[in-house]
């Protein structure tokens, strides 16, 4: 039971990270109807930028951790958001009204570009960082087993919740959110009503990338390492999460992220670490057999 509680905590933390990435997938899918294959790599870039800016700040002599984290967060969000914008501009916008497979392949190409770019720019080796946030709370201790909640775990979950709240507000209440929802329904009509479709889609990528960069930073803080390949695996799993939750649905993305995080953690804890990804993917396939549009996705009615 105690072991389970500990795994539950770990799973929720991991799931929060997946959820943040999954939102980017789901948003882009909702608005342009394509899988942004490069999103996982944008997450990886976010991790790298957080790492580099962190190193610079530390070497500049800053020692107060909250300030460092805040600056790292903002820098990483800003630069990564620009990556998201650029990716959309170069690889997707020219193919906006093209055939379905072309943007998918250019997205896959973009993913390779980003992956190889950071491999060339920063080297292939894993970049470790010493734990930045230490300490935590012992929730309880029983039979010699300690259930711990570390500070970093608290930070990951709180950041996720805050971002989700801001994001939900953004989509529900702001002009931009309204434009986004309009473009999701019908781009032509939205454009006729004065919505700047190009700008709205760009903003979608920008916001998605910013959220992914936060996930990248959390990943860096939580696991203490980044490498150029991490975007691929995390990306697939986050996309799996988005599909599991029902692609296009924001709460679905978060729910899917949590589920994938929990499945992965619990499977590793009780069965085998080696097969944790196999478990996550198998669950995806099983869910889709029974719920072809995911858990919270709108059922697709076939119009005849």
């Amino acid at each position: 039971m105690d072991y389970f509680a500990q795994q539950l905590i770990n799973g929720i933390v991991l799931g929060s990270i997946y959820g943040l990435i999954a939102i980017g997938y789901t948003m882009v899918y909702g608005i342009v109807g394509m899988i942004n294959f490069a999103h996982g790599d944008v997450f990886m870039i976010g991790g790298f930028i957080a790492l580099i800016s962190f190193l610079i700040l530390v070497s500049l002599g800053l020692t107060f951790v909250p300030v460092i984290l805040l600056i790292v967060l903002l820098v990483s969000m800003a630069i990564t958001a620009l990556y998201g914008w650029t990716v959309e501009r170069i690889a997707y916008r020219p193919l906006r009204h093209s055939f379905r497979l072309a943007p998918m392949l250019s997205a896959i190409g973009m993913s390779f570009v980003l992956m190889n770019y950071s491999q060339v720019a920063q080297g292939a080796r894993v970049k470790p960082v010493p734990p930045i946030i230490t300490g935590g709370y012992t929730l309880y201790e029983a039979d010699g087993f300690v259930v711990r909640l570390s500070n970093i775990q608290i930070i990951v979950v709180i950041t996720t919740v805050v971002l989700l709240a801001i994001f939900t507000w953004l989509v529900a209440k702001t002009r931009l959110g309204r434009d986004m929802r309009a473009c999701e329904q019908d781009q032509t009509m939205a454009a006729l009503l004065g919505v700047d479709v190009d700008r709205t889609i760009s903003m979608t990528f920008v916001i998605g990338a910013a959220l992914a960069s936060v996930a990248g930073m959390m990943y860096l803080l939580y696991y203490g390492l980044v490498d150029f390949f991490m975007g691929f695996v995390a990306g697939i799993k986050a996309f799996t999460a988005a599909v599991l939750g029902g692609i296009g649905s924001l709460p679905g993305a978060m729910l899917g992220g949590l589920l994938i995080g929990l499945i992965e953690t619990l499977w590793s804890a009780y069965f085998s670490v080696e097969y944790k990804d196999v478990a996550a993917f198998s669950i995806l396939i099983i869910v889709l057999i029974f719920l072809p549009t995911g858990l919270l996705g709108r059922p697709e009615v076939e119009k005849v």
Binding site: Y29, M34, I35, R100, M104, I236, F239, T240, V243, I247, S272, E274, Y275, D277, V278, F281, S282, L284, I285, I286, L288, I289, P292, T293, E300
Partner: peptide, 28 residues
């Protein structure tokens, strides 16, 4: 069999997952 009812991107992700499952099983 499982992907019979799936469309477009769901199909894409499931086939991708299937490819990864096979690879991971081979590795492990």
């Amino acid at each position: 069999f499982p992907v019979l009812r799936l469309r477009g991107d769901y199909l894409a992700i499931v086939t991708l997952a299937f490819g990864e499952i096979i690879r991971l099983v081979i590795i492990n």
